[in-house]
Amino acid sequence: MGLRAYVARRILQLIVTFWAFFTLLFVLFRMMPGDPTSMFIMDGMTPEQREQRIAELGLDQPLYVQYVEYARQLLTGDFGQSFIYRDPVIDIIVVRFMNTIVLMGTALVIAYLIGITFGAIMGWWRDSRFERGGIVVTLIARSSPEFWVGIVLLSVFAFWLGWFPSSGMRTTGGELGGGFVARYGSADFLRHLFLPALTGAIVYLATPTLLMRSTMLDVLNADFIEIKKAEGLPERTVLYKHAARNSILPIVTVMAIATGAAMGGSVVIETVFNWPGMGREMVNAVNNNDYPLAMAAFFLMGSVVIIMNFIADLTYVYLDPRVEYE
């Protein structure tokens, strides 16, 4: 199979996964306890209004009609109306989504940059004190749930030292800039970003570090490393250009999984730091029975993970010339 056929097959797989995912969502949100319509109904309605609302939402239709309608709405980005905000869900979620991406994206990039470098060095200096210490530190970081790391950082840097703000995304009263840079580049924003992003970075650091170390150990046993050393190339070249470059391949696959973890983690980190992102919005929505909003948030998180898996597979093909397209 050629590259093109592989990509085509992978796209097909992507579509199937998406379909399975939103079917799962449909089933989940129709499984709500009690009257399946009650969750869509706001309190204080007369029976007539209620009937009308049900008809509006198409809930009097047979299940398969509802399913088709639901699919159509999701595909067109129509997530319905939020119960609490009384605005279209899409308008609320887009802003929150961006905030989450900025926060978790920063955390992941930091975690992977540091993790890959650290792991490579740990593998290279096998059996050194640096390696042993590094393993203990990463294992401890990995053992800590996001909220716990967040609380520790919060207690130390916000409450005790007072260096960073403890919650939110910008100081209240601060001007909301128009453009992306004004919005996400201001010093005030970065000060708010620091602690939550650091929390994520610490928690997600362990996976790339440990994986990089263990694949490094594998790669370092390969004959070609010995040849590269025999070629007289500087140690740095052998380490980064050859050993690390080969070890990085499995990391690419894991990155997709890490994005999934980060999407989940955003729920916790945003709650701890009161970050106005999608994760916190989702918790609020579930707590307030605002199901359209909760569902939209869940849908977007899942989509990010599925698309990341897809990108990871394609990147892998690009990075490893040996890949056989099954």
């Binding site: 390969a222 004959d223 070609f224 040849i227 050859h242 470059r245 080969n246 490893d320 010339p321």
Partner: peptide, 8 residues
């Protein structure tokens, strides 16, 4: 020799 070259 196959293992003597960096595969990437």
């Amino acid at each position: 020799a196959m293992n003597g070259f960096d595969p990437v």
